[in-house]
Design a protein around this nucleic acid. Structure first.
Length: 355
DNA sequence: ATGCATGAGAT
DNA sequence: TCTCATGCATA
């Protein structure tokens, strides 16, 4: 055994493991540049009123969107679709098509979900917002070849299990409810030891803050924490990305997600502090990797239009999405995903009605 | 710290 | 097709 390191091509996950090392970097909490625009929550019912309080500029944008025609321009009707994930041009490597990891799913496990829908109102106007678009065409093509899978990935497929869904407890904001209970979560655990199980936003908030503080004290970066989580060997828990750790600390995750992650991060923290006490560690290295996917960037004007439309109709139908895509000259999938992401954003904890 | 994306599950 | 949890790539 041993050696077997076939590295094959990419080892993308360096396991960073060891906690300790690295510098912190911190700044105040999120200072987004233009972020806080997500505040607009649609109101529950009332379709006619959505316009109230609506920014005129936005409306204008939406109307402009509706206005249609882009007659001019468009030399060719095609738009590539599909995401272009360019893989890194491999420098000579063949990216392991099959074999190596055919991607496994991720560790998505802490899912909880459910959520009935809430909003959906406002349809009244949608019909007209972009109605006249020139649908035709659009390419139909699609490519679907994205393939790419990033290369292997750790193999553990953890799929698993932790679904916590915790639940309940009062917090509900006007409109919508959410949380649903059940599940495992709560149960007896609570209290004493691990301390999880409480949907109390307060607790989460303070924990996140303490977590960040202690993490920095340990000299560990968010990325380190993420990869070190796999070392905890908690069933069903693999590593997490820097993004997720960052979002946890800044409370930009859904409430359920925060609740699910808390015990895990708490466990890591304790372990890391314990380890530090006994100076474990070994500096080690990690690797570097390869890169691939290219991120699509939506230009400001287009983004503005999307935001304006979103304010009026957060859940456009497939047809409308296609129309919007066409008008803005964006791929349909890009537009669809944008709306999905936008909806997710408005549900994030930080600005959410929970507090 | 965040924008755009993927995928598993729920609808 | 949406929702949710996450992640890669970037600003």
């Amino acid at each position: 055994l041993t050696s077997a390191i076939m590295m094959s091509m990419n080892s993308k996950q360096p396991f960073g493991m060891h906690p300790i090392l690295h510098e912190p970097k911190y700044a105040p909490l999120h200072s987004s540049s233009e972020a806080i625009r997500r505040a607009c929550l649609p109101t529950p019912s009332l379709q006619g009123n959505i316009f109230a309080g609506f920014d005129e500029q936005l409306l204008q944008r939406a109307e402009a969107l509706a206005a249609v025609d882009i007659v001019a321009q468009k030399s060719h009707p095609f738009k590539p679709d599909a995401t272009y994930h360019t893989m890194t041009t491999m420098t000579s490597m063949a990216c392991t098509p099959t074999s190596s990891s055919a991607h496994l799913h991720h560790p998505s496990v802490l899912t909880s979900h459910h959520h009935p829908g809430h909003h959906q109102s406002a349809q009244g106007l949608d019909g007209d917002l972009l109605d006249h678009l020139t649908p035709g065409i659009s390419l139909g093509g699609m490519s679907g070849s994205d393939v790419c899978s990033t290369a292997s990935h750790n193999a553990h497929a953890h799929m698993s299990a932790i679904n916590h869904m915790q639940h309940h407890h009062h917090h509900h904001h006007p409109q919508s409810m959410n949380m649903h209970a059940h599940g495992l979560g709560s149960h007896g655990s609570l209290g004493s030891s691990g301390g999880d199980a409480e949907p109390d936003p307060r607790e989460l908030e303070s924990f996140a803050e303490r977590f960040k503080q202690r993490r920095i004290k340990l000299g560990v970066t968010q990325a380190d924490v993420g990869s070190a989580l796999a070392n905890l060997k908690i069933p069903g828990v693999g590593c997490l990305s820097q993004s997720t750790i960052c979002r946890f600390e800044s409370l930009t995750l859904s409430h359920n997600n925060m609740v699910a992650l808390k015990p895990i991060l708490e466990a890591w923290l304790e372990e890391a502090e314990r380890a530090q006490r006994e100076k474990m560690s070994k500096p080690e290295i990690f690797s570097g990797g390869d890169k691939k996917r290219k991120r699509t960037s939506i230009a400001a004007p287009e983004k503005r239009s999307l935001e304006a439309y979103f304010a009026v109709q957060p859940r456009p139908s497939s047809e409308k999405i296609a129309a919007i895509a066409e008008k803005l000259d964006l791929k349909k999938n890009v537009v669809r995903v944008w709306f999905c992401n936008q909806r997710q954003k408005q549900k994030r904890m930080k600005f959410s009605a929970t507090h």
